[in-house]
Design a binder for these strands. Structure first.
Lengths: 144, 144
DNA sequence: GTAAAAGCTCCAGTTGCTATAGATTCAAGA
DNA sequence: TCTTGAATCTATAGCAACTGGAGCTTTTAC
């Protein structure tokens, strides 16, 4: 059978859509295992590395922190993870995301509200600034 | 008339609801002017500083970056800002926030979708992990 | 053989803080 | 006035999650 395919760091980066520097950074922070090296010291990756890196990239795209990803990978690496564990991490994260969305919605409402208070002309005085400077006004809701 | 009221950094922090260290940080990064000092070197603030600091805190709560706040303060400091300028910065920022919300919504959808694919039992194998590892699957929409 | 491309390490910078350590200063009570 | 104890001072390092550069070596292609 054929020799398993290997990749230089550049090729790996291209395939995974992760920048070269970021690959090295992930290695340094322990998300990606140290690959073997050529005699000259260049990193040599395999399909396994590629898959893992894509996994990491996707998790990042889904907004998981590196810490959370480390958690997921630990589960996977231990090979003793259960579907329930993974699912609950995912749902927790989804709840975080929902909270963030709610916060941003409130934010947007406030921004639009204060923006609507001025006509935006060439007047050298702006109610937005006044609102932000004045101590009496309350901008946001309580929680936060 | 009475001597204008002054505040130590701790009092200022309490009034503005910004931490002491953060106040010093804002000074260092040029958002807050260097206040006069006592003979011993302690900072002495006035009402003006307090107002400015509250302004900064509110902008941060509204999600403005320090750079954006610097922009707003520059306008204010120049005293030549127009309502239109401030309004347009605010609307731009609101657009950013909307984009962020849209991204997070997509994210949440994806998370819920993949979470729904497993029953969450004690099974030592999880479709979420599979989806994230498999190369064929597309998780997110194009734009991003 | 040579030259360009790709890789190497190390380190600094980004944003918006937070948190020490160790020295000093200030305010209030005895 | 002296003496605590709280507040403040500076300087520095750390967090996340990268990104970029300098200055070198290795690999690859012609």
């Amino acid at each position: 059978m054929a020799t398993p395919r290997t990749y230089g760091i550049g090729e790996l980066a291209r395939q995974s859509q992760v920048k070269v520097e970021t690959v090295r950074y992930y290695e340094q922070s322990g998300l990606l295992p140290n690959p073997p090296r050529t005699d000259g010291g260049h990193r040599l990756y395999t399909e396994t590395h590629l898959k893992r890196l894509v996994f990491i990239r996707r998790c990042r795209e889904l907004g998981f922190s590196m810490k959370e990803i480390r958690g997921l990978l630990d589960l996977v690496d231990g090979r003793k993870y259960t579907c329930g564990e993974v699912r609950s991490l995912t749902l927790e994260h989804a709840a975080d995301v929902r909270r963030k969305i709610a916060d941003l919605r409130g934010l947007e409402r406030t921004l639009m509200r204060i923006a609507s208070e001025c006509e935006g002309g060439a007047v050298p005085k702006c109610p937005i600034i006044d609102v932000l400077f004045d101590s009496g006004t309350r901008l946001t809701d309580a929680r936060r």
